[in-house]
């Protein structure tokens, strides 16, 4: 106790806190980095290479060893070494300096893609993880689930066809539904379509799309498209995106008979005194939240109006079937109505 000095005690405390922070902070903490490095064995490298090749070939591009090492986070030496092994096992082959998947390599890649997308679907439906976290978590999980576990998961989820971003999930046999559509940035003015896919990479752009509150499955109409801005209407709201952001959204052009009347708006736009009928719940409302809304009577054809606004104007209580039910703004934006 003789050496006690409050200043030293404080310094020691902050030093320990800092160390703890550096070790255990989410993702970049040294502890996690070391743990991940220990885990990143050959299997993960092989699977990541296969996946990278699959995605490049799917988008109609070609890739060589150089661009591959740039795209992946692993040590270059390890990647070259692993590619050598993969050529021996006939997972990949060289066509000149272009690297290509063999048939068995493609099958393997599809299995990984299947796990990844199924896991994202699982996270969306059965857990409360934020959209931003899904991709990263699926990136780890795709190397861990076995063939049997994957099939069990698929059965539990009701053999879904698409993941929450709208990407098709390959079946066990490797069949894969194709997403027909064009990038939002390439659409002509006045074309009407339905958002079928929202790309979750890179993070920066995905964050912007989420912040705009754009929902998959909603019908859109482009009103302006130039080099600076893509402007479109969806669910009664106007959205303005930079073309680079719009390029990450895929839209399927709708046929004449598929187009639904345009006075389909979000419940969040309902004003006090107005009466409306519910048209449905957006695809963005998933899992437990969606079921709860249906349980409470937010179903097609129900009459709805505003009962009360809270002092902060969020949540708002809606009158549904004679009961007053409060919903938060983000929930209300996922319920579609038609004003009377």
């Amino acid at each position: 106790m003789n050496t006690y000095n409050p200043a030293y005690a404080l310094l020691l405390f902050f030093a320990i806190s800092l160390l703890g922070y550096l070790l255990f902070r989410p993702q970049k903490g040294w502890f996690w980095v070391i743990k991940n490095n220990l885990k990143s064995n050959e299997k993960i490298v092989i699977e990541d290479i296969l996946k990278q090749l699959y995605h490049t070939e799917n988008s109609g591009k070609e890739i060589n060893v150089n661009s591959l090492t740039r795209a992946l986070k692993f040590n270059d030496r390890i990647i070259v070494e692993v590619i050598g092994k993969m050529t021996n096992n006939e997972l990949v082959q060289f066509d000149g300096d272009v690297l290509k998947l063999t048939n068995s390599g493609r099958d393997y890649a599809l299995r990984i893609v299947r796990v990844h997308r199924l896991w994202e679907k699982y996270l969306a439906e059965k857990t409360g993880y934020d959209k931003m976290d899904w991709h990263e978590m699926a990136e780890t999980k795709e190397h861990e689930l076995s063939y049997e576990e994957t099939n069990l998961l698929a059965t539990q989820l009701g053999n879904p066809k698409y993941d929450p971003h709208g990407d098709p999930i390959p079946t066990t046999l490797g069949e894969i539904a194709d997403v027909k559509g064009e990038f939002l940035s390439a659409l002509a003015v006045n074309s009407v379509g339905k958002i079928v896919h929202i790309e979750d990479e890179p993070d920066v752009i995905y964050k912007q799309i989420l912040a705009e509150n754009i929902h998959i499955g909603s019908q859109i109409r482009v009103v302006k498209n130039n080099k600076q801005r893509v402007v479109f209407y969806a669910e009664g709201e106007e959205f303005k995106l930079a073309p680079i952001v719009a390029a990450n959204i895929t839209v399927r052009i709708l046929e004449k008979d598929e187009i639904i009347e345009e006075n389909r708006v979000r419940l969040s736009s309902l004003k006090e005194g107005e009466v409306a009928h519910i048209l449905g719940i957006s695809k963005e409302s998933r899992g437990e939240s969606r079921r709860r809304l249906l349980d409470l009577g937010f179903v097609k054809g129900t009459k709805i109006s505003i009962d009360l606004k809270s002092p902060m104007r969020n949540p708002i209580a809606y009158l549904v079937k004679g009961t007053s039910i409060a919903l938060r703004k983000d929930q209300a934006s996922k319920i579609l109505i038609k004003k009377d």
Partner: peptide, 13 residues
Amino acid sequence: LKGEVSTFNLELP
């Protein structure tokens, strides 16, 4: 707790 399922509704009886 970020992985736990989260929903919201509040009935005003």
